[in-house]
Design a protein around this nucleic acid. Structure first.
Length: 154
DNA sequence: GCCAACGTTGGC
DNA sequence: GCCAACGTTGGC
């Protein structure tokens, strides 16, 4: 079992939005970066733990816990000419973009970016690496445990 | 295959 | 809105 951090802009899909959906599930559509796509296509398995991170918002940070609920399938938005995520180079026969499905488990007290940065156990977290922009990053078991402790202590 | 130009991300 | 950092594009 592996762990991941997945960024979402809450103005588009927040942890609350997902918790109010049927089955608390959401297709993680819209990823248009090959490295993040490859994590979804190759590495993410049903049951993997997910830190639901709110980005590009007033209070960026970990906002909830989730899990991978289905392996990657083609991202439908790539085929939709009306979607901001439309990719004219993708075809049904040769999809370019894939997404896993994620199930929200619970909302947590917000663990802010600053709080993450100031935690010694998280010094090497990929999210916090200089210049990191990846919207999906691996989380080590030690980092996962440290974050759960911070959440439980909050 | 190189690399300059351009576009995007995302915190501040 | 700024801008650092990084990814992608496309001419050569």
């Amino acid at each position: 079992m592996a762990f991941w951090l997945m960024k979402s802009e809450p103005s588009e899909v927040s942890i609350d939005d997902v918790l109010h959906r049927p089955g608390q599930r959401v297709d993680w559509f819209g990823v248009r970066n090959y490295q993040a796509r490859n994590y979804m296509m190759r590495d993410m398995q049903v049951g993997d733990g997910v830190l639901f991170y709110h980005s590009s918002c007033p209070q960026p940070g970990v906002a909830g816990l989730a899990e991978v609920s289905r392996r990657a399938i083609p991202d439908e938005t790539q085929f939709d000419a009306q979607s901001p995520y439309y990719d004219p180079k993708a075809t049904r026969e040769r999809p370019r973009w894939y997404n896993v499905e994620v199930r929200a488990v619970k909302k947590t007290p917000l663990l802010s970016l600053g709080a993450l940065r100031s935690e010694p156990a998280l010094q090497d977290m990929r999210l916090l690496a200089r210049g990191n922009r990846l919207s999906i990053t691996p989380v080590t078991p030690a980092e996962w445990n440290a974050i759960l402790e911070l959440i439980n202590a909050a």
